[in-house]
Simulated scan of single mutants.
Amino acid sequence: MAAGSALMLLAVLVAMVYRPGPASAAGTGPCDIYASGGTPCVAAHSTVRALYGSYAGKLYQVRRSSDNATRDIGPLAAGGVADAAAQDSFCAGTSCVITWVYDQSGHGNNLGYQGPGGVGGSDTAANATSESLTVGGNRAYSLYINPRNSYWRDGHTTGVPTGSAPEGMYMVTSGTHVNNGCCFDYGNSETTRKADGPGAMDAINFSTQCWFGGCSGNGPWVQADLEWGLYSGGSQSWNPNQRAFTSKFVTATLKNNGTTRFAIKGSNAQSGSLATLYAGPLPAGYNPMKKQGAIILGSGGDCCNGNTNLSAGTFYEGAMVSGYPSDQTENAVQANIAAAGYR
Rank of each mutant, 00 (worst) to 15 (best):
A2R: 14
A3T: 11
G4R: 13
L7V: 14
V12C: 08
P22K: 12
T28W: 01
G29T: 05
C31N: 15
C31Y: 05
D32W: 06
A35N: 11
T39S: 13
C41N: 08
L51E: 14
Y52Q: 11
A56F: 03
G57E: 03
K58F: 05
S65G: 13
S65A: 15
S66D: 13
S66P: 06
A69C: 00
T70L: 01
P75T: 11
A78P: 03
A78R: 04
G79C: 05
G80A: 06
A86F: 01
Q87L: 15
Q87I: 06
C91V: 07
C91A: 11
T94W: 05
I98T: 14
I98A: 06
T99R: 04
V101D: 02
Y102W: 13
S105T: 08
H107P: 00
Y113A: 02
G115H: 03
P116L: 11
T124R: 03
N127P: 03
S130N: 12
E131D: 08
E131K: 12
L133N: 04
T134Y: 07
G137W: 03
G137I: 09
Y141I: 12
L143G: 02
L143W: 15
I145Q: 13
I145N: 14
I145K: 04
G155Y: 04
H156S: 15
T158Q: 14
G159W: 00
G159T: 04
G159Y: 03
P161Q: 04
G163T: 05
G163V: 05
S164T: 10
P166A: 15
Y170W: 15
M171N: 07
M171V: 06
C182W: 11
C182H: 08
C183I: 10
D185V: 14
N188A: 11
E190D: 10
T191S: 08
T191A: 07
A203T: 12
S207Q: 06
T208F: 02
G214D: 08
A224L: 10
D225K: 01
L226I: 10
L230V: 00
L230C: 06
L230T: 08
G234S: 08
Q236N: 07
W238L: 05
P240D: 05
Q242D: 07
Q242N: 10
L254K: 02
N257P: 09
T259H: 00
T260Q: 09
R261H: 10
I264L: 15
K265C: 10
S271L: 02
S273M: 05
L274I: 04
L274C: 07
Y278K: 02
P281T: 11
A284E: 11
N287M: 12
M289F: 00
M289D: 12
M289P: 00
K290H: 15
A294N: 02
G298E: 09
S299W: 01
G300L: 00
G300A: 12
C304K: 02
N305Q: 13
N305P: 00
N307C: 13
T308G: 04
T308M: 08
N309G: 03
L310R: 10
L310H: 09
G313S: 10
G313I: 03
F315D: 07
E317T: 12
E317D: 02
V321D: 13
P325S: 13
D327Y: 08
Q334K: 14
I337G: 00
A340H: 01
G341K: 01
